[in-house]
Amino acid sequence: MPKPPEPLFLDRIDTPMGEGLVIFDGEGALRAFDWTSHEARMHKLLRRQNGSVTLTEAPAPEGIVTAFAAYFAGERQAIDRLTCRTGGTAFQKSVWAALRTIPAGETWSYKRLAEAIGNPAAVRAVGLANGANPIGIVVPCHRVIGSDGSLTGYGGGLDRKRWLLGHEGAAFRDIAA
């Protein structure tokens, strides 16, 4: 008998970069964050990492809404307190846990992230796990840049990555500027 779909909840919040999608579970843990312009990608990641899920629109818990509002208002550590829960492989989860240790205002290379999880040869695999991160901003994959300090891909788009890093006061090499 197939496992029944996991019930998850969806709310929409305003951000300085457009409307955000907040996915959370019945216990109030954040399960995904993305922008409405990337909603299809978010649904794909949810299915890949969690199997079948059902999304019901509901107001996000006050703690999630307050943390995002505080982050966008300049309190860069406000999102660090959020409880997150993801699907994914053990390797992906180790990468995502390491991402949460990168302080706001700092950037790491993919190599440094691979070293942080104790697997320095896994730079490409770390990059793939970084790209499959379902909880943008809170699991700060935007803080990972190229070894030369340049911006690299970001699921929410390079303009958002540039904005987020600037908002956090991080140094990076912007070849598009």
Score class of each variant (00 low, 15 high):
2 P>W: 01
3 K>H: 09
6 E>A: 13
9 F>R: 08
10 L>S: 13
10 L>Y: 13
10 L>P: 04
11 D>S: 14
12 R>F: 14
13 I>T: 00
15 T>N: 03
17 M>F: 09
17 M>D: 11
19 E>A: 09
21 L>G: 03
22 V>H: 09
23 I>Y: 08
24 F>D: 03
24 F>G: 06
26 G>C: 09
27 E>N: 13
27 E>Y: 08
32 A>Y: 12
32 A>I: 08
33 F>M: 08
35 W>G: 14
36 T>R: 12
40 A>G: 05
40 A>E: 13
41 R>N: 14
43 H>I: 06
45 L>H: 09
46 L>N: 10
47 R>K: 07
47 R>Q: 06
49 Q>N: 11
52 S>N: 08
52 S>P: 07
52 S>C: 01
53 V>Q: 04
55 L>A: 13
56 T>G: 12
57 E>G: 13
61 P>I: 02
62 E>W: 05
62 E>V: 11
63 G>P: 04
69 A>S: 15
70 A>L: 08
71 Y>S: 14
72 F>H: 12
74 G>W: 02
75 E>H: 12
75 E>S: 13
76 R>Q: 08
79 I>F: 11
85 R>E: 14
86 T>E: 07
87 G>S: 02
92 Q>C: 04
95 V>H: 10
96 W>S: 05
96 W>F: 09
98 A>I: 04
100 R>F: 01
103 P>Y: 07
103 P>A: 12
106 E>R: 14
107 T>S: 07
108 W>S: 05
108 W>H: 10
109 S>A: 05
111 K>C: 04
113 L>I: 01
113 L>C: 11
116 A>L: 01
117 I>S: 13
122 A>M: 06
123 V>D: 01
124 R>D: 03
125 A>I: 02
127 G>Y: 00
129 A>E: 05
130 N>E: 04
133 N>E: 02
134 P>V: 00
135 I>A: 02
135 I>M: 01
138 V>A: 10
138 V>P: 08
139 V>R: 03
142 H>W: 02
142 H>C: 06
144 V>A: 08
144 V>M: 06
144 V>R: 08
148 D>A: 05
150 S>G: 14
150 S>K: 15
152 T>R: 12
154 Y>M: 03
155 G>V: 00
155 G>P: 05
163 W>V: 01
163 W>M: 12
167 H>G: 03
170 A>L: 03
171 A>E: 09
172 F>W: 02
172 F>T: 06
172 F>D: 05
174 D>R: 01
176 A>K: 15
177 A>G: 15
